[in-house]
Every structure is written in structure tokens, then in C-alpha cells.
Design a protein around this nucleic acid. Structure first.
Lengths: 328, 328
DNA sequence: CTGTTAGCGCTTTCAC
DNA sequence: GTGAAAGCGCTAACAG
């Protein structure tokens, strides 16, 4: 590996000035004579020139980076959103650097600091909130710093933090589901952690739809295994269960089956999110569809917005009825 | 948003030179007196200083970026690997920029060019090969350029390209599966595109294990829907099917069910990869486990390797027997 | 131990 | 149209 050719090399190979070379190799508005233009181009080509992005960023005082922060890329909810972010970024020639926040409540803070150092154009934070007030404060501070440095912040899923927000209609979707399940009288709600506003909205909407609030509430971890364990805990005479996320519901169904309970004959089960795989479960899962990829794309677009004011875009949630539920 | 403070600002606020400020704010080996050290630190803190990563990269002639190129982040095979890459990158303080290559055979080429411009330390390419010789050549060229620019290249899943490689034991895993399924006499193999070496290895291993090669071969797209369609095509009297990826197998099982065929009574089904969800299908899917996250982590480690010679690391594949198969 | 001073590779006025 | 030159913010010799 020899030293990479610089713009300087190209310029002298083409017999022009640095400025001219720069003008033709990058979409400058300044005009360059066809003759020189061609010479620069061919010099660049034969040298295999590739502009140093860092140098450009430094000189231009701007980068093409956007950060994407999420819990766990292996979780289909997050990867669905990530997929949307990526495809929306492509046409804008934006590069997305991804970070998983995982279990550590301060991981987002760390990542945000790094993104600030990288002078990222924007950061997209997908659902990462904790019950820890202090940590929450640190997050808000980190966001503040990031924004102060000129970055745009957008949160997906959970409102309440500074910056733009993409929020699905959790309440509305759950309400439709609750309404659909009306008539079941021994209903269990398998919910993720109470601290999540998302979870609360889904519960509230569901209960309102159901028409009576005296359902059993089981708390569980927001994961496949959390759902599985919850299945072992719900009352044996439950006739319907609303599991607040599909990933949990997947484990929940497995747990139910192991317990010898049939779906939907013994207990009707519904999830939320409509991650791709749930239609292939047996029985196929009734759920509320969230347009994950679209949410990601919307977030990216917000991230690009020039305007000053923080905006919120809502996305609809749609009830998808499949075989895992029946109306009583 | 005001102009971001620079190292210069910090230095003068602390009443020291640029060099000293630089030394304390970055892990230089040079020593600085405790007194100045403290002054710089407090100045940096009160100014909310954040080093400009681009400027550092330029001055240091090195970045902390690694690129991760994969087909589709929403596919659990890829997201599983990505997850491993991310967690391995974290402790090394590496940033990973991700790009999906999707359907476009030249997307990897484009991304590689961008990564070269960014002077990324390494690029990890997860399974992206086409039947198109010309495109393949362009890919190899792009890799060559990237490497010539000092980047490290590592491919996951498919050998044959320049650079390091992480290859799972496709053949061995499939062989174990074939052996397990011995005795079935009307066996179908539902395979992804023939151009993929991975697919070929899996087929060969499986056949060898099975002990007789006269199985029906059905080609399908390497996706859930591809598997679904294949299920409608296989001979009705098939007693066992090996589907070359779990994602395909997921669709395949759904298709079988719609056709009224029972699993495993009518046809035993096995997949490959062991993506998380297949254990929750009903019946749970027999498959060959690939340590996806570990593969990603290994790739990242190869990417970090200093040495010159390209190396190949193999990862084992393990037969996981579940309810979707029975021995005849 | 600390400070001075060249760059790193590119963009962008500002003259010509 | 084209070029000279001044940075962009930081690091790393090299002197003290």
C-alpha cells in the first residue's frame, strides 16, 4: 500500500491548480473549461484518486453522517426500523453509523458524545428510555449538547425527549384490538416494563377498547423470554391475552403451548408491531401493524429537515386479524 | 448554536499551548504536570469541548471506522451477524457504518468506494455475490482498491474474494443433517440460487449425509416468500425436505400448511442457520445452528488484525434437532 | 515537562 | 475561467 494520491497529485498530473482540480472533482458551481475538466478527470481516474472524506468534512465544516441508536439490531422491531432508515439514507448519500445501546442506560449518552465529535448531521434514537431519572437526565443533557453542536435529533417511538419525534399510534391501534376482543371476560395483559410510555399507551388503549379494565396485568421483560415466562404465570382460565409486543408474544405462544393451552381455543393471543415472522407462527398471530420501515424512513427525513421547530409525525397503526384470536 | 469550541479555545482558556492541551485531552504518552493537566481538563469541561473527529483523523492519518455491508438488515441472518459485529466493535472504540447492498449487485462496489474515501480501517462484507461475472469483477476491483488504500477486507460466509474470510462449516453441518435424515426416501431440497457457494456446500453435504443423491431439487428465491412458493411446488409425496436457510424454511412451512400437509407427519422439514425465531415455530424447526453473532465478532477481529497474510477462520455448525423432523 | 511550528488534504474567498 | 493562499481543527516532530 503506497500513499494515497491527493488532490494535489491529481492537480499536478493534470497540470492545473488545486482549485481547479477541486472544482471539477466535486460538484462546485464554478465553471471549468471542458479541456481542463477532461484533463483533471483523466488524471484522477488514472491515479485512482479518492477524495479524503475527513479532509473534505473539515474544510466544508459538514459531514454526511447520521447516527442510528437502537437497543438491539437483532430484534426484528429495531431491524425493521433500521432497514427503513438505511433505504431512506441511500438516496441522500448519507452514511449511517449504528450503535446499539443494549442494556446500558448510558450507552446512548456515550454514542451521542461520539456522534458529536464526528459532527454528525443527525442522530436517530429508537426507543431507549429508562426508569432511572438520573440517567434520563444525562440523556437529555447529551441530546442538548448534540443539538447545541448543530446536530439534529430525532426520537422514534417515545416522545418526551427534546428534538423531533416519530410516534406510532399505539393507543389507537391497541384500542382497535381491544374493541375486537370485546366479550372476552378473562383477559390478561402481558406488558413490558411500566416505565415505557409506549407500553402504557398500548395498555390504556386496549383497556378502553375492551370496555372493562379488570384485566389481569402481568409484567415481563420486553423480550422473547419475557413473554415465555409470562405464559407460565397467567391464570389458567384466561380466555384472551394481549401481549404488548410481537417479540414477547412469540415467546408467550411457545410458553402457552408448553403449558398445554391451545391457541385460540383456550386462549386467544394478540401481539403488537407485526414484525414479519408472526404471520408464520402457528396459529398466525393477530397483531397491530406498525409500518416499521416507514417509521425509520420518516425519522431519517426529519433528520434532514432544515427548519428550526421540532416536529412530531404520527404514524398509523392497523389491526391485523389472524388465526390466533377469535371473538367469543 | 454557536461555533463549537476548538482545542485552541481550550488551550487559551487554560493558559497553555495547543500541544499541551492536545496531550492531556488525548491519550498521549507524553507527560503533563498535574497542575496543567487539571487546568486543561476543567477548561475543556466548562467549554463543553468535544474534539473534532475529522480533524483528528486527518492529522493522525487514521480513522476508527469500519464498514459493514450486508444484503438486508431486516433479515435475521444478517442482523444476527451485525449484532456480533457491533458488540465486538464497542470495546475497541470502533464506529461501524452500515450499508445495505440489497438487490443491486453494484451496491457493494459503491459502498466500498465510499468507505475508501472515508479511509475506513476495514470493511466487512456479508454474503454478497452474484452470478454476473462482470459485476463480480467490479467487486473484486473495488476490494482491491480498498485494500490498496490501506483498508482491511473481510468477507463473511462466502470465500473466494480477496481478503480475510469467516466461513461456517456449511458442508459439515448439512452432512450431519443429512445423516440424521437417512432413511427418508423421497427427499426434497429447497435451495437458494445456484450461484451461491454456500448453497452448493449445503446441498453437497446434505446429500452425502443422506447417502443417496436422487433427491428432488427445487430452486427458490433466498427469502421467506421463495420458501413459501417452493412449498407449493414440491411433489406431494415428499417425506422430508431440507430447506437451505431458516428464513426460507419459515415460508416453506407456512406454504406446506396451507397445502394441507402436516409437519412432520407428512413431511419432515429442516432448515439451516438457526435464526432465533425458528424454535418458536410450530412445530419447532430442526436446523443447523450457525453462531451468527460469533461470526460477526470474528469478522470484526479479523478486521483488526495487523498481520499481512489473509486468513480464513472456520466456524462450526451444529445440528439442532427439534420437532419438525422425525427419523423414518 | 512545555511550547513552536509544520503539516494532514481539501475548500473557498479573493485577485488576476 | 484560473490560480494563490488562507484556513478548517488537530497531531507530532522538534526545540527548548
Amino acid at each position: 500500500m503506497t500513499r494515497q494520491p491527493t488532490l494535489h497529485d491529481v492537480a499536478s498530473a493534470a497540470g492545473v491548480s488545486l482549485a481547479t482540480a477541486s472544482r471539477v472533482l466535486n460538484g462546485s458551481d464554478r465553471k471549468v473549461s471542458p479541456e481542463l475538466h477532461a484533463r483533471v478527470l483523466s488524471a484522477a481516474r488514472s491515479l485512482h484518486y479518492s477524495a479524503n472524506a475527513q479532509a473534505q468534512a473539515l474544510a466544508r465544516r459538514s459531514t454526511a453522517l447520521v447516527g442510528l441508536l437502537l437497543h438491539d439490531i437483532a430484534d426484528p422491531y429495531f431491524s425493521g426500523i433500521a432497514s427503513g432508515v438505511l433505504s431512506a439514507a441511500e438516496p441522500h448519500n448519507l452514511r449511517v453509523v449504528i450503535g446499539s445501546t443494549g442494556a446500558d442506560p448510558d450507552a446512548a449518552v456515550t454514542h451521542l458524545a461520539a456522534l458529536r465529535g464526528e459532527r454528525a448531521r443527525a442522530a436517530i434514537l429508537v426507543g431507549s428510555r429508562t426508569t432511572d431519572r438520573a440517567a434520563e437526565k444525562r440523556l437529555a443533557d447529551a441530546i442538548g449538547q448534540f443539538v447545541a453542536a448543530g446536530g439534529r435529533m430525532v426520537c422514534v417511538g417515545q416522545p418526551g425527549l427534546p428534538g423531533d419525534t416519530v410516534v406510532p399510534d399505539n393507543r389507537g391501534g391497541a384500542l382497535a384490538l381491544g374493541t375486537f376482543l370485546r366479550g372476552h371476560d378473562r383477559v390478561a395483559i402481558v406488558a413490558g416494563p411500566d416505565r415505557l410510555r409506549t407500553v402504557r399507551d398500548r395498555i390504556d388503549g386496549f383497556r378502553e377498547g375492551l370496555g372493562h379494565p379488570e384485566s389481569t396485568l402481568v409484567r415481563a421483560e420486553f423480550s422473547r423470554d419475557g413473554g415465555y415466562r409470562a405464559a407460565l404465570e397467567i391464570p389458567a382460565d384466561t380466555t384472551a391475552a394481549f401481549v404488548t409486543s410481537d417479540v414477547m408474544a412469540t415467546g408467550f405462544c411457545a410458553g402457552l403451548r408448553e403449558r398445554g393451552l391451545r391457541i385460540p381455543e383456550d386462549v386467544a393471543v394478540a401481539g403488537f408491531d407485526d414484525v414479519p415472522v408472526v404471520r408464520d407462527l402457528f396459529p398466525a398471530l393477530t397483531t397491530v401493524r406498525l409500518p416499521l420501515a416507514e417509521m425509520g424512513a420518516r425519522a431519517l427525513e426529519l433528520a434532514l429537515a432544515e427548519g428550526g421547530a421540532a416536529s412530531t409525525v404520527g404514524v398509523p397503526a392497523e389491526l391485523i386479524v389472524r388465526a390466533s384470536t377469535h371473538q367469543p
